[in-house]
Simulated scan of single mutants.
Amino acid sequence: MVTDRVRVVIADDHARMRGRIREALEGGGCEVCAEGAEAEEAVALALAHRPDVVLLDIHMPGSGIRAAREITSALPETPVVMLTHSAEDDDLFDSLRAGASGYLLKDSDPELLADSLRSVLRGEGAMHPRLVARIVDEFRAPPRRRFGRPSPAAAKLSGREWEVMQLLAEGLSTDAVAGRLFLSPSTVRVHVSTVLRKLRVKDRESAFRLLRGE
């Protein structure tokens, strides 16, 4: 049953941000029962207070995604919502895989935060509007089909990593891939480096061959 007085645990390593979040939640009729600054503390507070919702930053020490995974495993009836500056696909999809019931951006209207958490408690989920299309695209075009041949190497890559490699394999430059995916060139290079490490190869061509199943 959803009540107006939603009890929330907040975890964010920036004290000023926690203050703004608390103010927004309390202004919306929620009760902040505890605050933490890193992942291990967030898990401990969730277990101790058994709140209605846990609100986590992704990039706090220890990883908010790891905290989400541990909290949803230990407290499956307690929804976790990520509140972050990151709009990166990897963070979004990794959060959902970890069991998060919502993914909100810190530049959202703070007056809507409390109602977003109530939506989660009603089973509706909470998602920043501009991220919904990315989730739809992920399911409409499963990335592991795009090289045209199934490969065991595909299972090691995130959706975004696969998309970057597909575009590079088609002959696009790093800058062109960045423009196509609305990323910075440095982010594209980081994705490529991560793929090479995951596949244990030294160059892109070797990665392409593995991903084609050659």
Rank of each mutant, 00 (worst) to 15 (best):
L157V: 03
L157G: 01
S158F: 00
E161L: 07
W162I: 02
W162T: 02
E163D: 09
V164K: 00
M165W: 01
M165T: 03
M165Y: 01
M165I: 13
Q166W: 03
Q166N: 05
Q166K: 07
L167A: 08
L167R: 09
L167S: 09
L168D: 00
L168F: 04
L168M: 09
A169L: 04
A169Q: 08
E170Q: 14
L172W: 02
L172V: 05
L172P: 00
T174R: 12
D175Y: 07
A178W: 01
A178S: 14
G179C: 05
G179V: 06
R180F: 07
L181W: 06
L181M: 15
F182S: 12
L183V: 13
P185E: 06
P185D: 06
P185I: 13
P185G: 06
P185C: 15
S186M: 14
T187K: 15
V188M: 11
R189G: 04
V190Q: 11
V190C: 10
H191R: 08
H191A: 13
V192L: 13
V192I: 15
S193M: 12
S193D: 08
S193K: 14
S193Y: 08
T194Y: 04
V195Y: 03
V195C: 08
L196Y: 09
L196N: 05
R197A: 13
R197S: 14
K198Y: 07
R200C: 09
R200E: 11
R200T: 07
R200W: 08
V201T: 13
K202G: 12
D203F: 05
D203Q: 12
D203R: 13
R204F: 12
S206F: 08
A207E: 01
F208V: 05
F208S: 00
R209N: 06
R209G: 02
